[in-house]
């Protein structure tokens, strides 16, 4: 079972839910949590644990081979990303702009643009108690989050295929990186909060998972702030609410210290039990 935890809006408590759910679930089943918020991963702040494995992730970008190049310049017109620039007698490659489509490399009449590996980010595998945890981090200044997410999902397939539960902590938003993380899941939990911002962004997230034809449910965080607009929307759209986590300052304080919640706050523990029960009902 692969469960993606996502939200349209950032800061709704996606990581909090993912981390706590994963740790609790690991008590009864083989669980792995993957932090795929590759631009700003925070799961490790809460989980810590021992590093089991660390893997550099590479992507392939062309490298210019001056000797065989006839300077025809065709590569610069093919590249849809302007990652190749011809300056007089040199061809410059901008790896930051490259999307690794291989067009220039494979179409070059001189074979002067062989693909070479360049660093994209890292995947770390930690373990805390029985929980396996992976964190993927994009190198700063790079813009290609989606390829790193794709490789992280491959890493999960390779290393944790037999785990009962794989939980994905997705990047926020509804753009390409969120889609990449969510689309491979069997089920999606959307975390939201009962404010107009939360609702507005939830609607976008709902539209996204519906477009991907993925089954999903909602968990409401900070229940009690804001208004009842969210509940009216969920009812009208017949969207299941799996749990509600109350708005408490205590939770915010524990979070700020990077602490785990469910062993300290009964309301959180109850919410997680509800979610796990629902998950069991699915399989």
């Amino acid at each position: 079972m692969r469960l993606a935890i996502a939200s349209g809006k950032g800061g709704t408590g996606k990581t909090t839910l993912a981390v706590n759910l994963a740790l609790k679930a690991s008590g009864t089943m083989k669980t792995v949590l993957a932090d795929l918020d590759v631009e700003e991963p925070n799961g490790s702040i809460f989980i810590g644990g021992e590093t089991v494995d660390e893997k550099q992730v590479y992507r392939y970008t062309p490298a210019w081979n001056q000797k065989s190049c006839s300077l025809c310049g065709k590569c610069t017109s093919w590249c849809a990303y302007n990652a190749l620039i011809k300056l007089g007698e040199i061809i410059l490659v901008m790896p930051n702009l490259c999307h690794s489509c291989y067009a220039c490399s494979e179409l070059c009449p001189d074979g002067a643009l062989p693909m070479e590996a360049s660093p994209l980010g890292t995947i770390r595998h930690f373990s805390r108690g029985k929980l396996d945890f992976t964190e993927s981090k994009l190198n700063i200044g790079l813009e290609q989050a989606a390829p790193l997410i794709k490789q992280s999902l491959n890493y999960l397939d390779e290393n944790f295929k037999d785990h009962d539960l794989q939980i994905l902590d997705s990047p926020p938003g509804t753009a390409c990186s969120m889609m990449e993380a969510v689309r491979s899941a069997d089920y999606v939990i959307l975390v939201t909060e009962p404010t107009p911002f939360g609702l507005h962004d939830l609607k976008l997230a709902v539209e996204t998972v519906r477009q991907l034809e993925l089954p999903f449910a909602v968990v409401i965080n900070r229940d009690g702030i804001g208004n009842d607009e969210l509940d009216r929307y969920l009812k009208a759209e017949e969207i299941a609410v799996w749990a509600r986590i109350p708005h408490q300052r205590e939770i915010a304080e524990l979070y700020s210290r990077g602490e785990i919640l469910f062993d300290k706050v009964a309301a959180v523990d109850d919410a997680l039990s509800d979610i796990l029960q629902r998950l069991e009902g699915l399989s």
Binding site: T76, Y81, N82, A83, I85, L87, L92, M94
Partner: peptide
């Protein structure tokens, strides 16, 4: 008005 890599393209033009 291009989507990607306008900086390098402009630099190429300046060259």
């Amino acid at each position: 008005d291009m989507a990607h890599g306008v900086g390098p393209k402009t630099a190429q033009k300046i060259h």
